[in-house]
């Protein structure tokens, strides 16, 4: 059995404070949901690191190498002399290299984003539906700031609810997983 206790706050400060309290109370790291990026999350919940930059770097390097090889190898394969230039010409191929560096950098950044943000949600099921494993409150997309606590027992549910209410939650919702 897994319960998600979600507290809705009207302002970000209260929500952050609540999240800090939850973490201090050893109820696990809560998940915050907000309509805008919240500032100060890392001070409260600890630093976040993402792998996106590695994806970007790899993509750029991969793109650069494949760009040059695409131009150079195929030019040797289809050797069409033009303009008295060498078959493998640096200046033009550098441009191809440059463009593909950026193209693959972009594509891999996106892949990195999907991987690290675990999107799309529920990739292997019907991913456009809401994943039951991830609680969601629609208000959080409008003007509410939500703190979601994952609880494994009834005690922790009550404890979490109490902390959230104390912190000034306008509403506390209990989302229970089916299985």
């Amino acid at each position: 059995m897994k319960n998600f206790v979600v507290g809705l706050f009207g302002d970000p400060e209260s929500a952050l404070a609540a999240a800090g309290s939850i973490q201090t109370a050893d109820l696990g790291t809560p998940e915050l949901m907000s309509p805008v990026p919240m500032e100060g999350v890392e001070e409260v919940l600890g630093e976040k690191k993402s792998v996106i930059k590695r994806f970007s770097l790899f993509g750029a390097i991969f793109g650069g190498i494949s760009g040059f090889l695409l131009a150079a190898i195929t030019a040797v394969l289809y050797a069409h002399p033009t303009g008295g230039r060498p078959i493998i010409t640096f200046p033009p191929y550098l441009i191809i290299t440059y463009e593909l560096t950026i193209l693959f950098g972009i594509v891999f950044t996106v892949i990195g984003f999907f991987v690290s943000a675990r999107l799309p949600n529920g990739l292997w099921t019907a991913w456009w539906k809401q994943d039951e494993n991830r609680p969601y409150v629609p208000e959080a997309a409008v003007n509410k700031f939500a703190v979601s606590v994952t609880c494994t027992s009834n005690e922790s549910v009550q404890q979490a609810e109490a902390i959230l209410r104390t912190a000034g939650a306008e509403e506390v919702r209990d989302v229970t997983e089916e299985n």
Binding site: L32, R118, P120, R134, S148
Partner: peptide, 11 residues
Amino acid sequence: LGWRGTDTEWH
């Protein structure tokens, strides 16, 4: 894509 607006997603 099932965006929820969590702190990790925003980050």
